[in-house]
């Protein structure tokens, strides 16, 4: 390529989103030039393609790939090529505005266009073979084919029984967190400094004594805490966000009705009285129905993709030019 190092670095910068010149890097990649209408031609994973991918990976990981890893890589290259080939066979590369736009941008960037007419730009892009070589166009096609393959026909939508069985299988994922409602008395670390622990201990003694203030006035034994003295139905996450981990742990473990503490937070010490505890529990099926459906469809989509790739390998004559590959 002979690019100066700074240009190379710039290629990795995200700022110039539409000026990616990756096309140039791939323009002479022979494996990229698999033609429209040639779907019965064998899918050839050329030796230099494999070596090129290996060099890139080894450059990034700083070590040589093992033979087993090379097999994985070849599998991936075959899958990608099959998806690409099938996408073109189905015409997914035609009439796509994203692809046209991308091709026009590439031609503009190369500075070889004589005018800015979109049709002319597209023609030029096709003449230059950019539709075959541009990595973004290739990625759009592979992704479209991959997602199309994963889409289930309407008659295969999950049934009620299947959703319920999926729920049984994955219910723990949807466990509802334990919650507490509490009030607290706050002792500010910043203002009390040395007497902090002692002040909190004294207030606790008073709260447990006969002349304890009424619950709504308990906060007066401590310092102002502008966010408030009562927290309603908070989960561990919510307590951690507002007070920190130590406080959350202590509040969830506290015995309801009794004043406990002092409990440390990021802000000082607290005396805590839990008013209500709600234990963790599993949700009703209806509460998570749409999540279940989306996740089950995703799970099945993955299986459909694997099946489709197996079928494509049979349909196309796959040839791998590498000693590490044993066909079949």
């Amino acid at each position: 390529m002979g690019s100066p190092p700074r240009t190379h670095r710039w290629l990795r910068a995200p700022a110039l989103h539409f000026l990616l010149i990756g096309a140039v890097l791939y323009a002479f990649d022979p494996a990229a030039r698999i033609g429209w209408g040639e779907e019965r031609e064998p899918v050839v994973i050329a030796a230099d393609r494999i070596e090129g991918a290996l060099r890139e990976i080894e450059g990034q990981t700083g070590r040589a790939a093992t033979p087993g890893e090379v097999s994985f890589l070849i599998d991936r290259l075959i899958d990608e090529e099959l998806l690409l080939r099938e996408a073109r066979a189905r015409g997914l590369d035609r009439g796509d505005r994203s692809i046209r736009f991308r091709l026009a941008e590439n031609v503009r960037f190369l500075g070889v266009a004589e005018d800015d007419d979109p049709a002319a730009l597209e023609r030029l892009a096709l003449e230059l073979g950019l539709d075959r070589s541009d990595p973004v166009v290739r990625r759009i096609l592979m992704e479209k084919m991959r997602l199309l393959t994963m889409t289930a026909p309407p008659e295969e939508a999950p049934s009620e029984a299947e959703l319920r069985s999926f729920f049984e299988r994955t219910a723990e994922t949807y466990r509802q967190p334990a919650r507490v409602t509490l009030q607290h008395v706050f002792f500010a670390a910043g203002t009390r400094r040395g007497s902090l622990a002692e002040d909190a201990a004294q207030a606790l003694a008073q709260l447990e004594s006969a002349d304890a203030p009424p619950p709504a006035q308990a906060w007066r034994l401590g310092d102002p805490f502008p966010p408030g003295y009562r927290v309603r139905l908070a989960s561990r996450r919510s307590l951690e966000t507002r007070f920190g981990t130590d406080f959350a742990e202590a509040a969830l473990a506290a015995e309801p009705g009794r004043w406990t503490g002092p409990v440390r937070s990021a802000y000082g010490l607290h005396l805590v009285q839990v008013e209500e505890q709600r234990p963790s529990h599993l949700p009703a099926f209806e509460s998570v129905r749409s999540t279940l459906k989306a996740r089950l469809e995703a799970e099945r989509g993955k299986a459909r993709l694997q099946q489709a790739l197996r079928e494509l390998r049979v349909r196309y004559d796959v040839r791998v030019e590498h000693p590490a590959w044993r066909a079949g």
């Binding site: 509802q176 967190p177 989960s235 949700p283 509460s287 998570v288 999540t291 989306a294 996740r295």
Partner: peptide, 11 residues
Amino acid sequence: EEFYDRSAACS
């Protein structure tokens, strides 16, 4: 949709 919690946990 797969990750939006529509249950009362609102996690």
